[in-house]
Design a protein around this nucleic acid. Sequence first.
RNA 1: GCCGCGUUGGUCAAGAGGUUAAGACGCCUCCCUUUCACGGAGGAAUCACGGGUUCGAGUCCCGUACGUGGUACCA
Length: 508
Amino acid sequence: MSKKIRVRFAPSPTGGLHLGGVRTVLYNYLFAKKHGGEFIVRIEDTDQTRFVEGAEQYIFDCLAWCGLQPDESPLHGGAYGPYRQSERKPMYKEYAEKLIANGHAYYAFDTPEELEAMRKDYKTAENPAPQYDGSIRMKMRNSLTLPATEVEKLLAMETRYVIRIKVPQNETISFNDLIHHEVSFDSNVVDDKVLLKADGMPTYHLAVVVDDYLMKISHAFRGEEWLSSAPVHILLWKYLFGLDQMPQWAHLPLILGPSGKLSKRDGAKFGFPVYAMNWTDAKSKELTEGFKEKGFLPEAFINLLAMLGWNSGTEKELFSIEELIENFSIERVHKSGAKFDFEKAKWFNQEWIKKLPVSNYESIVKKCFTDKDVKIENDEYFINILELVKDRCTLLTDFYDQGVYFFKAPIQLDSEAVKSKWNNEKTDFFQDYIDKLNAIPTWNTAEIEEAFKHLAIEKSIKPGELQLPMRIMLVGGKFGPAVFEIACKIGQEETINRIKKALPIFNA
RNA sequence: GCCGCGUUGGUCAAGAGGUUAAGACGCCUCCCUUUCACGGAGGAAUCACGGGUUCGAGUCCCGUACGUGGUACCA
């Protein structure tokens, strides 16, 4: 009885992959994995005017980064290919013609100009956007209004035509959505959507039902922006394959930006990424930053996306992909859209930085350093440093600022922080401290600190008043782990050098 | 305009007729720390509105408002 679980993500290769898209992938993936099913990626490239070179590969790169690998796709193979709709073109026409034969669709010969005229002529105050529907299809040029001989002739002459669905009048079209439950529409407000375009390509509406059928899709998850066109799909399933064959629908809530629907613009305006990875528009050369390049861990990205529209019902918020698979349930997906909050997103990343062993992201962070010409010669030392500063980083890119001073002396010293309390006694202290440091036989944190405190007491200065200047000398600013720890890590010679270099700056 | 979907603190949210309406992010205060974080303790802040139903409504029903999506030979 119960079919094998098969779900699909069906993107159009037209540009960057945004948050909402990845979340749709994620929910598909989680559902499939939880039920031992298959996750398919089908490329919906039926609109040749919007096709963008490289966009398909980019989508797969994003999925790979997120760790959401398809079981079947144009790149991964599978038994239900081809997985690009452009390569399936002949299949759709067959079904469109079947619909005509059964009286559920018709040829329409109206030119774009005629359609435009129709929209203008029938436009009224109450109906500002007239549709090609049951109330006006009999006034247009199609195989319903033209004599059969005329239709034959037009077809024989290879006149450009489209095939439109003939939506019945006065019916209630309803279906049971996994998230919204019972949803229904009055068929009179559903228009006769184009099924097959003049170029022979199917529209989304035809393609999605034909392919979902042929690929044996059991559950269809998609964004809520599709809910309004669901009645067309329901009708098509009814006419073509039978409602009992239809997948279970789940229309996922939208992810909103600070003001309405989340857009690429929001990202630019508010300074957060909306795409999974960097995307450069081929024409404008405009670069849109991605979560990956912003310094997000894929674990965190997945985690935060999962929580945007779903909740386990417990207080747990940090989930690994395995835990998500185990806990996910479509019943707990919310009905309403969620506003994306970058602050919370950063919190997830910070938590994952703390949670994961540094070896997980060492190479990514290393690249941040080498990109800025800081050479990492000792991996063990590098990992050590990362461990030391990880609590201070919310993005992977933060490691650079939090850790550079372990590899090279600070260029700028925040001398303003010490100036007001700086005096000759302190200069004197540090000069003597240099000698003490030189005398330390085995360089370690305890010895460095011991020498510091003894000398401070000897000179009757509170050690606390000397720690900040010392920190500025070594780090350059008011941040970082314990000072003596830092001194220990950077070494005897380097510590002394930095103090020597800083003294004249403080005295200036 | 019409149609669909939605509405618990600033944000994410728990909640399935009876709760002092969880928790998290952010914000504020304090502790820890003579740095910055981490960690810990506390605080401010919410059921869109109006009618019902009910002994009792954030929870059910109806309206209104607001938000959001659709209204293409785009997906």
